[in-house]
Design a protein around this nucleic acid. Structure first.
Lengths: 213, 213, 213, 213
DNA sequence: AATGAATGAGTGTTCATTCAT
DNA sequence: TATGAATGAACACTCATTCAT
């Protein structure tokens, strides 16, 4: 249905169209992220998004099935970005509590440079619950893997598999609440997390988790 | 603002004016709580609330300035109820980790018997941010007091004031995420939190907090 | 819920409100009929209707559940009007073909004075099929009754019950097509039906129906 | 405009240009007929039509001026098909009422085997009024010719030219309403028309038309 | 001739809020 | 104070049509 010209010559043209489409998709998604970041999911109207993306309202529906569709895609998109960021920011060779601390700092650093992420993540449980659940699932899986490797290394002991999952939730929870309290103000964000907070976190973890009791 | 119990029985006839108004206010607030609990803040329309309260739509604006106004009052109202419930459920004389565990269990028990509270609390950060912040502030204050008393009793050591606040946030966070993961399913709630989760929580706390390291 | 004042004095006020509401309902319905009559169901927008009725768009939804709702009510409303008109226009004491002719002329007379009715009726099969089916059912029932009485009077013979129903449909059909051809032009209507058309109709009927063969 | 059959086989290679275009035109028209038949004119979108025809949306406008344009062409296209079908299905040599009955049965038979035609025909008065008027004009002309021949044969008498036209409308009307009532259900069609209905039709006609009174 | 992304006017519908009664 | 009809701004979404490629 699309192969009338059997020559290569049609490819560069095609490419250009496809690429343009991809760009439009990208700019709509980025615009949505920005709008949700500043106004929240509830006030993220199609009109705001398309205006920010510089396209007509109707164009939106060439790329997304509905408003909810784009909201659902936001967290996966940003979440992957965040994980990539953290992965690339993690120093090699760290183990034990030091590794945990690096992970925490990388997370806060990402938050600091991507102020819209907090709101996208937080409100997702309300406005894009499936995406949120999936995001948490991914995070938990990665985290549990890390904890299990620490167990294998003998850094952690005395927790069975199920308990380790519960601990994972506690760690993720602590991250989120610390971010809420110390890395935000009314506008969106308020600079880096104070050191004493990270120290407290590490103290509880160092004693509570990284010890054979 | 909501404590009229002492007057009710003494003036069975004359309560018409003020008393009736208070009743209407109360029933509107309760209706709002119920609606938000089951439909969420976003879908809590004035029409639903007034219908459930059994008054006309216009009546609503004799008691609240706006829709946002009633949403703002919801969490303080329910939060106080929850704190009272927990306070009265706490066994006397417990100290140390045992006291902490009792508090945790009381919280989960309240959640289990008041399924609408979870949603009111959780969505509040999105839809009634100031009320949510205030609620957290109240919780933190109470919690920090408890931790300080534990410090005074010599049960906890090695954390300065600021660090203790950070720890408080970690504890509240853990509560919330554990509730999210273990005390809910699609409908609203899914029975009590499994014991091994509470054990994991207590393990981390017992080692991480209640120890002189 | 509505009986706070137990006195009559509240009734006149009530009445006034209720009456006003009824008026608004009426004017919306009439506006809808007019708009559909001139623009057709497809182009009958809420905005046109409310503008013509002189109320805000939102007001529409205090009286009708949806656009389709008002479209559904149009034919029953006009259909009853038409039947009332015909009933009151029918001379007393006529029987046989003369009675049939009077009925036909009354129908065309109604059409002539209510030009929107033709379109409302005709397009209803497409846009309000249930209302149309019900309308036809009512018409057929009335018509069959009339034919059966003619049979009882011995004016008609040689048709069994089922055949009589089929004949009813032929009569209604003829009415409609004659109206389409002879009582309309582009605008909406084009004056009365020529006499020779009615004569042709009566000839076919007189010989075909009102005879013992 | 649609008769290219004679050329097809002679130029198997060269048909690329013009022939291909005709094929596309044809497939768009057929697609439109199918879509309108199942979804109705109102829901026949260009997107549905082009999708069914297997071409891009833009291609549509190389063959039709507008959406309305294709809708206008539908009934003439299908109507001719129907007339051809009926003409070829008519037994030779029939005259009088028998001929009329055969025509009626052929019409119902066509409807039964072409369920989409009913909708295309019926809704045309609403959505393609000019095409509908033209279609009726063609039908009437053919029918009047048939009746005139019957008059010439002495089978029909007592109607002048104008009256005969009115009768024609009555016959077409009866066809349509009988089809509406007896040859359709919710889905689209419901099998053949019962015999007693055709008998009733023939009785009225036999007495009312084919008699010298 | 064929494509399909872009357009934007237009639609039905919702709902917090107002206000005359 | 209670009522509930009226309001109108706002929204998500559709689709015929255009046009650069």
């Amino acid at each position: 249905m699309a192969d009338t010209n059997s020559l290569r010559s049609s490819q560069p043209r095609r490419r250009s169209r496809e690429e343009k489409a991809r760009e439009t998709y990208r700019s709509l998604l980025e615009a949505a992220a920005q709008v949700v970041g500043s106004d929240g999911y509830a006030d993220a109207s199609i009109s705001k998004i398309t205006q920010l993306a510089g396209v007509a309202q109707g164009t939106f529906y060439n790329y997304f099935e509905s408003r909810q569709d784009v909201l659902n895609r936001l967290l996966p998109y940003m979440g992957r970005q965040m994980l990539d960021h953290i992965a690339s920011a993690m120093p090699r060779g760290l183990t034990g509590p030091a590794r945990e601390e690096a992970r925490l700092r990388a997370f806060f650093a990402y938050l600091d440079t991507h102020p819209s992420f907090y709101r996208i993540l937080y409100e997702a449980e309300v406005f894009a619950p499936e995406a949120h659940a999936e995001h948490i699932r991914v995070l938990v899986k990665g985290y549990k893997g890390a904890l299990n490797r620490a167990v294998a290394r003998g850094e952690i002991g005395g927790f069975d598999e199920d308990e380790l999952e519960a601990v994972t939730y506690m760690l993720l929870a602590s991250r989120a609440y610390i971010a809420m309290r110390y890395a935000r103000n009314g506008d969106g964000h308020a600079g880096p997390v104070p050191d004493h907070v990270i120290q407290a976190y590490m103290k509880v973890l160092g004693r509570g988790l990284f010890s054979q009791a």
